[in-house]
């Protein structure tokens, strides 16, 4: 015998959202500020911002895995390399200069590589996941380093200036990077940032967070843990490859150093610096890292020591990163007013 439910399901349009959209607003502020930057900043500063856009896109993907799914990859620079080498091969070897085609190829190749790599990695968590991704990253680095004829070995591969929307631009490399490519990369950051925002706020994004919090419980609530983790891994790889393509164009070269484990470490540093617990934190971390790296390198030859010390202090005193500090300041200000 079955007694019918007496509770009527009534959707309330006034109900609060599942999470507040402040992350999107913060990203919008950064994008608008960056769009206005060419009006006031030096050319040198603008050339620093293009790699930042590449890192920011890669970090949005990295944080889908780290901040949202709880999987810390120590080999994610591999996907920066996939994007960079796809750009180099297409532009300098195959004569394909359309950056849109380059991006589509980078996306396809990164997804193809991420599927088997992710399939093997996402069955493990914590340090085991980290070590496996590190191993795959080093394997990829070795391939790039040793297959000289194919990849240029330690010399890397030159990246020819791509066409944007089929158009070439006049002027030198700096004019290209601080002009059309600056806005192109910024546009990509804005679009991919919005797409990522939709992803993390979707039921899929919620399932990722449930997996991060308690994978066993999530599975009993019908969450396909491995499959969902793999999807996050592939999306994350795609973002890494797009970021890598932008980095390759800004440097003019795809070289194995981009894939080395220290570069994966830099991605972790940037995410922690900005705060992996918030949507926009890693983007802020990417900006802070690029500026910090530049100024510390200019100030001292012991820049690695200084960067290391900063990371130590950050983890001990500000584990929620710059975004966490900013959040606390805003909360205190609101409380006070």
């Amino acid at each position: 015998m079955r007694i019918e439910t007496s509770v009527r399901a009534v959707a309330s349009p006034a109900a609060p959202p599942l999470s507040r959209p402040k992350g999107l607003w913060a990203l919008l502020v950064i994008v608008v500020a960056m769009a206005a930057l060419p009006l006031i900043a030096s050319t040198y500063t603008l050339t620093l911002m293009v790699p930042f856009f590449g890192f920011a896109i890669a970090l949005l993907g990295f944080n889908l895995l780290f901040g949202y799914t709880g999987l810390l990859s120590f080999g994610h620079a591999m996907f920066l390399g996939v994007g960079a080498y796809a750009t180099a091969v297409l532009t300098s070897k195959l004569g394909v200069r359309s950056f849109e085609l380059v991006l589509l190829t980078a996306i396809a190749v990164s997804a193809l590589i991420a599927l088997p790599v992710g399939y093997l990695c996402v069955r493990y968590t914590r340090i085991f996941f980290g070590m496996l991704t590190l191993a795959f990253g080093m394997l990829f680095h070795s391939i790039l380093f040793k297959f000289y004829g194919l990849t240029g070995g330690d010399q890397g591969m030159r990246v020819v200036r791509p066409l944007l929307f089929g158009m070439d631009s006049a002027g030198g490399k700096t004019a290209f990077l601080t002009g059309p490519f600056y806005y192109y990369a910024l546009g990509l950051l804005a679009v991919l940032g919005f797409v990522m925002w939709r992803i993390v706020r979707s039921p899929f994004g919620l399932h990722l967070q449930a997996i991060r919090e308690n994978a066993q419980k999530a599975s009993y609530l019908g969450v396909q843990v491995s499959r969902t983790r793999l999807a996050a891994f592939v999306i994350s790889a795609i973002y890494g490859a797009v970021g890598g393509a932008i980095l390759a164009v800004s440097i003019g070269l795809a070289d194995p150093e981009m894939v080395y484990w220290t570069q994966s470490g830099n991605l972790v540093f940037m995410a922690v610096l900005g705060g992996s617990g918030s949507f926009v934190g890693p983007v802020i971390g990417g900006l802070a890292f690029v500026l910090l790296h530049d100024s510390v390198m200019a100030a001292t030859q012991y820049w690695r020591f200084v960067m290391g010390a900063i990371l130590v202090l950050l983890v001990i005193f500000f584990p929620r990163g710059i975004a966490g500090i900013a959040g606390d300041v805003v909360a205190r200000f609101r409380k006070g007013s």
Binding site: I199, S202, P203, V223
Partner: peptide, 23 residues
């Protein structure tokens, strides 16, 4: 809300589209 939505989204098969708005 999010905890209960995890189960509801599973039951209603909302996962296939990663761009679907949960809110």
């Amino acid at each position: 809300r999010e905890t209960l939505a995890v189960a509801a989204a599973s039951r209603l098969k909302r996962i296939a589209n990663p761009f679907r708005s949960l809110t």
